[in-house]
Structure formats: structure tokens, C-alpha cells
């Protein structure tokens, strides 16, 4: 796991891969974290083995409190969700999770991953700054990305993945 620059939070942080047994926890988290409802197909997709390193539950003191999930599109990773329950924020949990995914992406071989991208609603400046601090940059604006929530526009953020010379 990447070591964060700030002092380590007091609790134990750990991660777990998604399984059919804990997918209910992911559903529960998403239902309170995000204003959108994900389809059953979405939950089937994040259980696929090829995305296993990029779809993880986040635990704080052994309690599941967040998740990070990605989709593999050709040679790119698209980050679908990253969320932590409100009381557990400001503890660098999201940073650790994102860092873990970036690292997994840079170590991934078949296929080699070139880029991680994601959407952020244009009203959510905090989120944008968060990703920027992890080396993401704005790649454009997706007009009318959201159908039922406003503002409907979203920033497209992306990060180019560096691979070590040996890979």
C-alpha cells in the first residue's frame, strides 16, 4: 500500500476484493453515498475477475465504510465510484484507496493500462481538487452528462499511468 505523506490515521485500514457474498455491502454503500442507482448489470460487472484489483471495499477498523470501483475499457481504466461514509472522511481513506488503484494499474500487464479517467459533477470542486492532488488533470467537459440531477455537466478528469522501465 502506498504510504501517505500525512501522519497515519489512528484506525486500521484494510481492503477486500468484491465477492458475491459482500456485494450487498457495496450496494448498501452506494445507496447512501451516491445520488444515482446502479443497475444489476453494473454489480455483475464489478465482480468480474479482470477488474478485481480495481474494485475494492475499504474497511476502517474492520467495518466496511467505502468502496472504489473501476471498469476496464480497452487499455484504459474508468473510475465509476469512489466513496467513503461521511463520518470516516478526512482520514485519507479515499487517498489510500485511489493510490492503491493507481499502483495496481501501473503494475498491471495484460493489457498495460495507459490512462485512468473519471467524471466529476461540475458543482463538486472539492472532488476535483482531490483528484488533482493525485495527479489527475482536466481533459474536458461532458455536457449534459447527468440526466436527472443538476448541474447536468461533468468534468472529465484523467491521469496518464507511468510504467516502470522494466515493464
Amino acid at each position: 500500500m502506498a504510504s501517505s505523506a500525512s501522519p497515519a490515521p489512528p484506525g486500521r485500514v484494510s481492503f477486500a476484493s468484491l465477492t458475491h457474498q459482500n456485494i450487498g455491502t457495496v450496494r448498501k454503500l452506494n445507496s447512501v453515498l451516491f445520488p444515482v442507482k446502479y443497475s444489476d448489470k453494473y454489480y455483475q460487472d464489478i465482480l468480474q475477475t479482470e477488474v478485481e484489483p480495481f474494485c475494492q471495499l475499504i474497511y476502517y477498523n474492520d467495518v466496511p465504510i467505502g468502496n472504489i470501483c473501476c471498469r476496464l475499457e480497452n487499455k484504459e481504466l474508468y473510475l465509476t465510484t469512489l466513496g467513503v461514509l461521511a463520518p470516516y472522511r478526512s482520514r485519507k481513506l479515499g487517498s489510500q484507496a485511489l493510490q492503491r488503484i493507481i499502483e495496481a494499474a501501473s503494475l498491471h500487464n495484460k493489457p498495460q493500462i495507459k490512462r485512468i479517467s473519471l467524471h466529476v459533477q461540475v458543482s463538486n470542486g472539492d472532488a476535483k481538487r482531490f483528484y488533482e492532488s493525485h495527479g489527475f488533470g482536466e481533459a474536458g467537459i461532458h455536457k449534459n452528462y447527468y440526466k436527472k440531477i443538476t448541474p447536468q455537466d461533468a468534468w472529465i478528469l484523467e491521469k496518464i499511468i507511468e510504467h516502470g522501465p522494466g515493464q
Binding site: P35, V36, K37, Y38, S39, D45, T80
Partner: peptide
Amino acid sequence: DESEVETVF
């Protein structure tokens, strides 16, 4: 029945 919210993906 979960309340009507936006479905994405």
C-alpha cells in the same frame, strides 16, 4: 422498492 433515483451505467 427503492425510491426512484437516477440509473447510470
